[in-house]
C-alpha cells in the first residue's frame, strides 16, 4: 500500500525531555565494547574540553528513534512496521551529547516514496538541549519491503 504523500513536511510536537544519565552512557559504551575514557571518566572528558562524560556518536539514536515512533506508528501514514528495515542513518553534530543533558526531539517527515513496491520514509529528528540550543540532527531512512511470496526466498 502506498504511503500517504500528504505527510511530507509534517512535524510532530517536541518530545518530553530525555535526561542523559552517566550510567546509561557507560552501559551503552560497554555494550559496544568501547573503552574510550571520555565515555566513563568525567576527568578524562573534561581534559578534552567537555563538561562531563560524553556519549558515543550513535548513542542518541535510541532517543531519536523513539521519537520517530510517533511518526512510524501514526495509523494515518499506513506504514507496515513488520516489514520495515533500516536503510540509511546519518547524524550531524553541533556538539557531543553529554551526561546531564535534557534533550528534546522534534521529528519531521522529509520524504515519502514508493520504489519497486517498497515504501520509503525519511524522518529527521532535531535534538535540542534544555537551553534550546541545537545538539545533533539525525536522519533515518526506513524501508518497508514489498510483500513478496515466500516461495521467492527458496
Amino acid at each position: 500500500m502506498a504511503l500517504d504523500q500528504s505527510f511530507v513536511g509534517r512535524s510532530y510536537p517536541p518530545t518530553d525531555p530525555y535526561e542523559v544519565g552517566r550510567e546509561k552512557i557507560r552501559e551503552f559504551a560497554e555494550a559496544v565494547g568501547d573503552a574510550n575514557p571520555a565515555y566513563t571518566d568525567s576527568e578524562a572528558a573534561k581534559a578534552l574540553g567537555h563538561p562531563d562524560v560524553i556519549a558515543p556518536p550513535t548513542f542518541v539514536f535510541a532517543i531519536t528513534f523513539k521519537a520517530a515512533g510517533q511518526v512510524i506508528q501514526d495509523p494515518q501514514l499506513g506504514l507496515d512496521y513488520s516489514r520495515v528495515v533500516h536503510g540509511d542513518q546519518k547524524f550531524a553534530y553541533t556538539r557531543p551529547v553529554h551526561a546531564g543533558d535534557r534533550l528534546t526531539v522534534t521529528s519531521t517527515i522529509e520524504a515519502v516514496k514508493s520504489l519497486a513496491g517498497n515504501d520509503i520514509l525519511d524522518v529527521r529528528g532535531d535534538v535540542h538541549d534544555a537551553a534550546g540550543e541545537h545538539v545533533v540532527t539525525a536522519w533515518t531512512k526506513l524501508v518497508a519491503r514489498a510483500a513478496e511470496p515466500a516461495a521467492e526466498e527458496a
Binding site: 559496544v32 568501547d34 574510550n36 571520555a38 565515555y39 578534552l48 574540553g49 567537555h50 560524553i54 558515543p56 556518536p57 550513535t58 528495515v85 533500516h86 536503510g87 540509511d88 542513518q89 546519518k90 547524524f91 550531524a92 553534530y93 556538539r95 557531543p96 536522519w139
Partner: peptide, 20 residues
Amino acid sequence: RVVTDWAGDPGAVVEYGVRF
C-alpha cells in the same frame, strides 16, 4: 570506533552517516 580511536576525542566527529 576506527575514527574515534584515531582522533582520540569522540567529540571531534562532526558528521557520520552510513547505508545498511
